[in-house]
């Protein structure tokens, strides 16, 4: 039985060419994975459902709350369906996590600004801008973050 401890070889007899060939295999596998076409229905669905959150504020209650909760549930269902159909669950690398965090701050900030505009000045158009930016940002983020991580090749 091969184990982690016993399989490590401190002095491998491997030529530079053989090691380079092995590294090329690694890069080829990851390049193929990156080149795999992915269905566009997924980012489009996530974008539409994300846009529903700011717009739900304009609806009378409790309809607005129901639409908001339904959009969150819809996003979770879409993610599950996508991962099951595509057969790959992405692993967020550090860069993706930072981008997601910054985008989250931007979207929350826009919603806060829209709320201030609406409550203090009676201007509801801020919600429309927030929804549009939400949709565009989530579309782009979904495409960006669904890519398999490529930190090791």
């Amino acid at each position: 039985m091969e184990t982690q401890a016993s399989s490590q070889n401190p002095a491998p007899r491997l030529s530079r060419e053989e090691a380079a060939a092995a590294l090329r295999q690694v890069e080829q596998v990851q390049a193929t994975l990156h080149a795999t076409p992915m269905p566009m229905w997924y980012p489009a669905t996530i974008a539409l459902l994300s846009a529903a959150a700011p717009l739900s504020v304009l609806l009378p209650q409790p309809t607005g709350a129901v639409v908001s909760l339904a959009s969150i549930a819809g996003i979770m269902v879409a993610m599950r369906v996508f991962f099951n159909r595509f057969g790959i669950v992405s692993r967020g690398d550090r860069r993706q996590v930072v981008v997601m965090a910054l985008a989250g701050l931007l979207l929350v900030g826009l919603m806060a600004a829209a709320a201030v505009l609406d409550v203090r000045y009676g201007q509801a158009w801020g919600w429309g801008i927030s929804a549009a930016v939400n949709a565009v940002a989530m579309f782009a983020l979904t495409i960006y973050c669904r890519r398999p991580s490529r930190t090791s090749a």
């Binding site: 990851q30 994975l33 490529r150």
Partner: peptide, 17 residues
């Protein structure tokens, strides 16, 4: 090595993929 290279790039992958 190729299996590990693929799995390293993702959180999880289906066998058929």
């Amino acid at each position: 090595l190729r299996i590990c290279a693929l799995l390293e790039a993702v959180a999880e992958a289906e066998f058929s993929v």
